[in-house]
Nucleic acid binder design. Structure first.
Lengths: 138, 138
DNA sequence: TAGCCTTAGTAAGTAAGCTGACTATTCTTA
DNA sequence: TAAGAATAGTCAGCTTACTTACTAAGGCTA
């Protein structure tokens, strides 16, 4: 299968992303986390109490995707959802102590993933950044 | 959200891949296809009658993922599955005339996707190729 | 202020993809 | 050749993520 040379770039992109997520998930499984879960926990940890809608925007997923993800994180005790006193339509999500602990453990796995997959090209970073920046979402 | 500058490369990779797949799916929806469906149809079209297992390897997906995908393609009349006379455990998949027609139409969408997303950096290609090549699957 | 429009979140349905476990063949080797 | 190992495909269960459609709440304007 040296036909890989002939693959269009979009195919390389989606395949590479799947393989890297697989590597991440292997490291995160013992922690009871997944890669999207870590991205979300990260956003909750840094952006303080935040609404599910803003979280979805920050992680670049639909609100309909964020809802179930938050439910799973909540059922495992990693986050908390409370009613938003200032807007009864929405909620405020915060990270729990347990969630913060797990998140820190997941950050310590980062080097293990990077050594399994070579991702430290600065050109790659720039090219991907340009794609995400120029692709409108929503 | 200029915090994107701080995203790790793996996050840029998975986000960029999702956005590009979204762009593809928008163009493919009228044809009744999806991006993984096109990759699979492509492999069937070029590798002739081929087993589901070899297809899965070529598309870099688990056999358990390929099965349902083939069922959907078969139910829409894009491919055909026949018993493999030489190994009763397996099957042989071929593309139908309808499938080939749809595949050709999807190829004509390629420029539309490329103009929506800038993917023509040669460095990007090389970096992604290296990731896929150096990440072992299975 | 009543009526409309917008926004926040949820629900239902589908697709893709994974893990782990299973059956039915085929191959291999003692 | 009989037994065990390997391979092909499927099933069940779960997660992520999409689309379309809905309810409830808040804002705006005539």
């Amino acid at each position: 299968m040296p036909d890989m040379e002939l693959w269009p770039t979009s195919r390389l992109l989606s395949t590479a992303a799947r393989l890297v997520e697989l590597a991440w998930n292997d490291k995160l499984r013992p922690l009871g986390l997944t890669y999207p879960a870590v991205l979300t926990l990260d956003a909750v940890a840094t952006a303080g109490p935040i609404t599910p809608g803003d979280l979805a925007k920050s992680v670049r997923v639909q609100a309909q995707t964020m809802g179930p993800l938050l439910s799973r994180l909540e059922s495992r005790g990693f986050i908390r959802r409370e009613p938003n006193r200032f807007d009864r339509r929405s909620q405020l999500v915060s990270i729990t102590d347990l969630g913060r602990t797990l998140l820190e453990q997941s950050h310590r796995q980062e080097n293990n993933v990077l050594s399994a997959v070579n991702l430290d090209s600065e050109d790659l970073r720039e090219d991907l950044l340009a794609i995400v920046r120029h692709t409108n979402f929503n």
